[in-house]
Amino acid sequence: MTEKKIRVLIAKPGLDGHDRGAKVVARALRDDGMEVIYTGLRQTPEMIAEAALQEDVDVVGLSILSGAHNALVPQVIANLQANGQTDVVVFLGGIIPEDDIQNLLDHGVYKVYGPGTDTREVCKDIREAVKTKA
């Protein structure tokens, strides 16, 4: 059998209406051979967890530019866990102040990427995270 495909949900929680970054990452992951489910703008944490459940993804990538990450990200993770998806890798991209990062990692975020991150790095990290999880 062929190697299991990595499935990633790319979601944008919150109210900012700008998804160029999310789309760039989605394309990079696709070009790296992953199956990327894209859900569009303005998703609540419940909606994101629900989509992750229906799609049985290995990874959830969140893109947040609004500054609401401290509130939204822990909610997404709490919803994933409430649904029983305790082993999903969560990463975060966007404009995240240095001071907030440790708190987010403590809540279970795998990694935080700022603007201008090399997408190859994201691909490599995801593959590694999924492999160690399995």
Partner: peptide, 30 residues
């Protein structure tokens, strides 16, 4: 994609009205 084997599955974006109904289950497939 025939070259990388990856895919972008974007159909859910058009199905946002269905998110609140737990009797509906959407599955994307490459």
């Amino acid at each position: 994609s025939p070259f990388t084997g990856g895919a972008i599955l974007g159909d859910r974006v058009r199905m946002l009205d269905l998110q609140d109904d737990k009797q509906i289950f959407i599955r994307s497939m490459a």
